[in-house]
Amino acid sequence: MLEISHLNVAYGESQVIHDVSFNVGQRESVAIMGRNGMGKTTLLKSLIGLLSARAGAIRLGDIDLVGQPSYRRVQRGLAFVPQGRMVFPFLTVEQNILCGAEHSGYRQVPEYIYQFFPVLKEMKHRKGGNLSGGQQQMLAIARALVSDPKVLILDEPTEGIQPSIIKEIAQTLNVLRHERGFAVVVSEQVLSFALDLADRFLVIDRGRIVHEEMRAQLNQEKVKSFLTV
């Protein structure tokens, strides 16, 4: 479904992503693991179009996304939940969610969103800035989902969230991706969350993919060695 080939991304003259290639299948969940500063966020921003690729290809099905602006990539089927969530603090929960529905045509929040995130239904008239960190993360995910994505991209979704909510989000995403048919690409440092969500693990180190394993064969100690300073 999503194919990244020989991707290179730079900030000015400083190259951050070096010849990265990987595929993501339909309904598959892929975790990009690595320490801070290893290129996880840069990689994901390049997928959604917030950063330009210096070289390489990003294909969704038969469509090459390189050079297309972010809104076109959303129209094609990518959705992005940024690090820090970036909800609109002065809009209500319901208004925040519908901000993501521009390309899907929803005029009201789809019932499945409230089914999987009932706390958002309870708080639909509350301002986004008044929610807890975990509730804001659910809101950011819901806002991305109403674009009806083929691939949901999440950048460090566990940041600042209590463990019980982290596990709940992983379980919800697993059910949703199978029911709604989308794939997941998630950057993460928390191995327990990735183990709950991902089918396959890629480790990024200094902008290069240095290790890849399926969850069933995962050597957790080896992965942990890439996550510690």
Results as ranks from 00 to 15, higher is better:
Met1Thr: 02
Ile4Ser: 05
His6Ala: 15
Leu7Glu: 04
Asn8Gln: 12
Val9Trp: 05
Gly12Trp: 08
Gly12Glu: 12
Ser14Tyr: 10
Ser14Lys: 15
Val20Gln: 07
Val20Pro: 07
Ser21Gln: 14
Ser21Pro: 02
Phe22Val: 10
Val24Tyr: 05
Gly25Glu: 14
Gln26Leu: 13
Glu28Ile: 12
Ile32Thr: 06
Met33His: 08
Gly34Leu: 02
Met38Thr: 13
Gly39Tyr: 11
Thr41Ala: 08
Thr42Ile: 03
Leu43Ala: 00
Leu44Ala: 04
Lys45Tyr: 03
Ile48Tyr: 01
Ile48Gln: 05
Gly49Asn: 01
Leu50Asn: 03
Leu51Gln: 12
Ser52Trp: 00
Ala55Cys: 00
Gly56Ser: 05
Gly56His: 08
Ala57Asp: 13
Leu60Ala: 08
Leu60Thr: 01
Leu60Asp: 06
Ile63Asn: 07
Asp64Glu: 15
Gly67Trp: 02
Gly67Asn: 02
Pro69Lys: 00
Pro69Trp: 03
Pro69Ile: 05
Arg73Ile: 03
Ala79Pro: 06
Ala79Asp: 03
Phe80Pro: 00
Phe80Ala: 01
Pro82Lys: 11
Pro82Tyr: 07
Gln83Arg: 06
Gly84Glu: 09
Met86Glu: 14
Phe90Ile: 05
Thr92Gly: 10
Thr92Met: 03
Thr92Phe: 07
Val93Gln: 02
Ile97Arg: 09
Glu102Thr: 13
His103Phe: 15
Ser104Asp: 05
Gly105Ala: 12
Arg107Cys: 05
Arg107Ala: 13
Pro110Phe: 01
Pro110Tyr: 01
Ile113Lys: 07
Tyr114Phe: 15
Phe116His: 15
Phe116Val: 13
Phe116Glu: 12
Phe116Lys: 12
Pro118Arg: 12
Val119Pro: 00
Val119Cys: 09
Leu120Val: 12
Glu122Phe: 05
His125Ile: 05
Gly128Asn: 06
Asn130Met: 14
Asn130His: 14
Asn130Asp: 14
Leu131Trp: 04
Gln136Thr: 01
Ile141Arg: 13
Arg143Asp: 11
Arg143Leu: 13
Val146Arg: 12
Pro149Arg: 14
Lys150Leu: 15
Ile153Arg: 06
Glu156Ala: 09
Thr158Lys: 11
Glu159Gly: 03
Gly160Ala: 11
Gln162Thr: 04
Ile166Tyr: 01
Lys167Gln: 14
Leu173His: 08
His178Trp: 10
Gly181Tyr: 00
Phe182Glu: 05
Val185Cys: 08
Val186Tyr: 09
Val186Cys: 10
Ser187Arg: 01
Ser187Pro: 03
Ser187Thr: 07
Val190Met: 08
Ser192Gly: 03
Ser192Ile: 07
Phe193Val: 12
Ala194Phe: 04
Leu195Ala: 09
Ala198Ser: 10
Ala198Glu: 09
Arg200Phe: 11
Val203His: 04
Arg206Pro: 00
Ile209Pro: 08
Arg215Cys: 09
Ala216Gln: 15
Gln217Ser: 15
Asn219Cys: 11
Lys222Ser: 08
Val223Ile: 15
Lys224Asn: 14
Lys224Trp: 10
Thr228Ser: 03
